[in-house]
Simulated scan of single mutants.
Amino acid sequence: MNTAGRITGIGQGGHITLAHGGGGTAMRALIDDVFLQAFGNDPAVAQEDQARFPLSRFTAEGDRLAFTTDAFVVEPLEFPGGDIGTLAVCGTVNDLAVGGARPVALSAAFILAEGLELATLRRVVASMAACARAAGVRIVTGDTKVVPRGACDGLFITTTGIGTLPAGCDISIAGGRVGDVVIVNGTLGDHGAAILCARGDLALDTAIESDCAALNGLTQALLDAVPDVRAMRDATRGGVAGVLTELAEASGVTVRIEEDRLPIRPDVAGLCELLGLDPLYLANEGKLVAVVPAEAAERALAAMHAHPLGRNAAVIGTLAEIPASGRRGDVRLVNRLGGQRVVTMPMGEQLPRIC
Score class of each variant (00 low, 15 high):
G14I: 12
I16N: 03
G21Q: 03
G21S: 03
G23M: 03
G24M: 11
G24W: 12
G24Y: 13
G24K: 11
T25F: 01
A26H: 14
F35A: 02
Q37K: 11
A38H: 10
A44T: 14
V45F: 02
A46F: 05
E48F: 04
E48K: 04
G62K: 06
D63E: 07
A66R: 03
F67R: 00
T69E: 15
A71Q: 08
V74T: 15
P76F: 04
F79S: 08
G81N: 10
G85N: 10
T86H: 07
V89Y: 06
V93I: 14
N94G: 04
A97S: 10
F110T: 03
A113V: 11
A113C: 12
E114G: 12
V124R: 00
S127Y: 02
A135F: 11
V137T: 12
V140R: 03
D143K: 09
D143V: 07
K145G: 05
K145C: 03
D153G: 11
T158F: 03
T159G: 01
G161E: 10
I162L: 09
G163V: 10
G163T: 08
V181M: 09
L196A: 05
D201W: 01
A203I: 13
S210R: 02
L215D: 04
L222G: 11
L223A: 04
D224M: 03
D224A: 13
A225I: 09
P227K: 09
R230N: 11
D234E: 13
A235V: 12
A235R: 00
L244T: 07
T245P: 11
L247C: 05
A250Y: 09
A250W: 07
G252V: 07
T254H: 00
V255F: 07
V255N: 02
R256A: 10
E258Q: 08
P263G: 07
I264P: 08
D267M: 03
A269V: 08
E273G: 11
A283T: 13
E285Y: 04
R299A: 15
A300H: 09
L301V: 13
L309A: 12
V315S: 03
G317E: 01
L319M: 11
A320G: 14
A324N: 12
G329C: 12
L333I: 14
V334T: 15
N335K: 09
R336T: 15
G339K: 08
Q350C: 14
L351D: 06
